[in-house]
């Protein structure tokens, strides 16, 4: 293996890993806030990708210009999901853990069915894009521009999420995470914070979805695979930890790229799953999880 190959593998792992990290950040945010694993996370990603593809076809605008629209749309969807379903699931008296798992799971099946009904089962992709199919190369290392742009946008969105956590709202989020009952005593509306948390989480996955759509095909089932990687990333990084999501996302991306290179591409996920299981043996709450 030449140095170029090594660099190429490392770089493509890094680019993909940053996208994984943003998808996982949305999941981790929601989990950290209210102890819910959103099993419809992959379907939110799929919806964002469809929104991008359809807007692109209708307006002819570059996906980069659609980012704000999709992000706001996903934010609203996230808030709606909380208001209509998750808020109720939190109020359940019995079997709360299972109700939460299976409510989001039923939602995932519902969204997948709705997408199949509305868009059919065909693969679709973005037609108009400034960056489409262009590559730059440094020495012998080729970098596809859509992937590069996607990972940079994801990095910026990630920084924005971290920035939000330093604002007044971010501190309210953190306080609600620490003790959801005590915050009511100091005048924080828990329900509102939870709803905004869902909005932010959905917006994060929305941004990742828009950028992913610039170089990845869309179908009603595209979410499942990315969701699985997101769960692994969040569990590896530690549920609720943003830093953990970033580190674990990049780690997963790298392991996937290396496994695909060393073993067969069809086994590329075995490597990341194995790393995840090994880490969990040593640190059951993930790399950055609170013990």
């Amino acid at each position: 293996m030449t140095l170029d190959t090594v660099l190429q593998v490392a770089l493509s792992g890094l680019l993909m890993g940053l996208i994984y990290a943003l998808v996982a950040a949305g999941l981790s945010l929601i989990f950290g806030l209210m102890d819910i694993v959103n099993f419809a996370h992959g379907e939110l990603l799929m919806l964002a990708m469809y929104a991008t593809v359809l807007l692109n076809a209708a307006t002819g605008l570059d996906p980069l210009l659609q980012l704000p629209v999709v992000a706001v749309g996903m934010f609203v969807l996230g808030v709606l999901i909380y208001r209509c379903l998750i808020g109720r699931a939190l109020g359940v008296q019995f079997n709360r853990g299972m109700v939460q798992i299976f409510v989001t799971f039923g939602l995932a099946i519902f969204i997948r069915g709705a997408a199949q009904l509305a868009f059919g089962g065909d693969f679709r992709s973005v037609n108009v894009s400034w960056l489409g199919n262009k590559t730059v190369h440094f020495g012998g290392v080729y970098v596809p521009l859509p992937q590069l742009a996607a990972s940079l946008v994801c990095l910026v969105a990630f920084a924005a999420l971290l920035g939000i956590s330093r604002t007044e709202f971010g501190r309210a989020l953190e306080a609600t995470r620490e003790d959801r009952d005590a915050v009511a005593l100091i005048g924080i509306d828990r329900d509102r914070i939870f709803a905004l948390g869902w909005g932010l989480g959905a917006a994060a996955v929305g941004i990742a979805g828009t950028m992913l759509a610039t170089f990845y095909y869309v179908s009603p089932t595209v979410g499942a695979n990315f969701a699985l990687i997101a769960y692994v990333t969040v569990a590896l990084g530690g549920f609720g930890s943003m830093t953990g999501a970033l580190v674990a996302g990049v780690l997963i991306g790298e392991v996937e790229a290396v496994t695909a290179q060393v073993l067969e591409p069809s086994l590329k996920q075995v490597g990341m799953f194995a790393i995840y299981l090994v880490v969990l043996m040593v640190r059951p709450r993930g790399l950055f999880g609170k013990i």
Binding site: G106, F110, G113, A115
Partner: peptide
């Protein structure tokens, strides 16, 4: 295409809640 999944998923959500 899809209505079956919507009914199934919706049923799961409704029963669970």
């Amino acid at each position: 295409g899809g209505i079956d999944l919507m009914i199934y998923g919706g049923l799961i959500v409704v029963i669970a809640l």
